[in-house]
Design a protein around this nucleic acid. Structure first.
Lengths: 205, 205
DNA sequence: TTTCAATCGTTCCAAATTTCACAATTGAAA
DNA sequence: TTTCAATTGTGAAATTTGGAACGATTGAAA
């Protein structure tokens, strides 16, 4: 299948999260209109996103929650599991380690790395903290795909370089700074302050 | 000036953050190409974003860092300061309270609210934790603009309702769930897991 | 059985966004 | 002084995204 734009992928993941929620409430049928009400998106957009996969809805009825979820997951994740590692086990790192995200079965944080001797060997939410030097070895052994940066921004580029060296192909950067990496490595930046201010600008006018 | 689309606003905030960094390194001139290298965006896009404001660059020379930063800030923030409150002072809430974002002078977290008796009265990073019931009063007194949701998702909608009731016009939701609010209230969702998985999908193909 | 209302899937069009191409400007070097 | 290379700013083309319209399908009700 053709590669989908990031925007659609992100929305589809939101649908999957929403479908998980509906399943917990034992709602086994759902229409694009209902999904639209929950997510705040338009029903047409949702149908169009879904139609990128295969015909799975039935007119007049809607979608079977279970089937739709499975269809979206199959196309997007293809039975693969995401193995994450995190650099930095401070306040933010610990919070991410304990983040109760959806889709536990597909996403697993497999190791944390920290420079502080005092933290090495400790566990947070079932994940062991290792010295940074062991990152290349552990990343290879655990087949980690993506690394999270949760270190102070002064260390950000240095850690990013080390992540690339260790063989990671994706980086989610929570530090409020830009990093420079080879083109083959994908980066997502999560700067809280930029989000706050951008919302602020929106509501000002 | 005409209201800019959110995408441009977000990028301009990134430029401001970048310019702050350059100033710290005493770099007083910068070209769109250099900004492009740092941020990973294209130089044309950067010039076009900047041209929404006023002519501030000089051909062959580039932009004066200080002037460009001031211009962007003036148009976007207009000397206003952002007052934030946060609901939930658990792991994630504490991490946000300690987040070392840029632009400290314009962004201030003024109060935290938590349901746990044990936390009331404590301070985190200079911010006092209050009982949730005092939110409406404190939000009005401190002129808070935006509220952050950092509570478990089971409490998410309930807290969102309370935030709207308290007079907030913007919500940044860190819980992995959707919330329903009146149209006048703007919401930004920050679901870490969706970010991780969306990056994962990108690097898979 | 026929009609009807709800809903999906899709085509076409409009709007937003990005990229391209290039004229205009400017300091530096010949 | 003249030329040149670097850089800005911008109009137009290209691409992407979102929305409107609508035919097709389907179970329910008359």
């Amino acid at each position: 299948m053709k590669k989908l734009p990031r925007k659609i992928i992100t929305r589809v993941l939101l649908y999957i999260r929403t479908l998980e929620g509906l399943l917990k409430e034992k709602r086994y049928l759902v229409s694009s209109k209902q999904l639209a009400d929950i997510t705040g998106l338009s029903d047409v957009k949702i149908r169009k996103d879904i139609s990128n996969f295969k015909k799975v809805g039935r007119p007049r009825i809607g979608y079977k929650t279970v089937d739709l979820k499975r269809t979206l997951e199959n196309y997007l994740l293809q039975n693969n599991k995401l193995h994450l590692v995190i650099f930095g086990a401070g306040n933010l790192g610990s919070a991410i380690l304990k983040y109760p995200g959806f889709h536990r079965s597909k996403v697993k944080l497999v190791a944390a790395f920290d420079a502080s001797k005092a933290k090495i060997g400790k566990m947070i939410n079932g994940v062991r903290i290792y010295p940074v030097e062991r990152a290349p070895e552990i990343i290879k052994r655990r087949h980690a795909d993506i690394g999270i940066i949760a270190v102070p921004k002064e260390r950000c580029q240095e850690v990013a370089d080390y992540m690339v060296l260790s063989g990671l192909h994706g980086i989610v950067n929570f530090a409020p700074c830009s990093i420079s990496v080879p083109a083959k490595v994908q980066v997502r930046n999560m700067d809280f302050t930029i989000e706050f201010l951008s919302l602020f600008c929106d509501i000002q006018k």
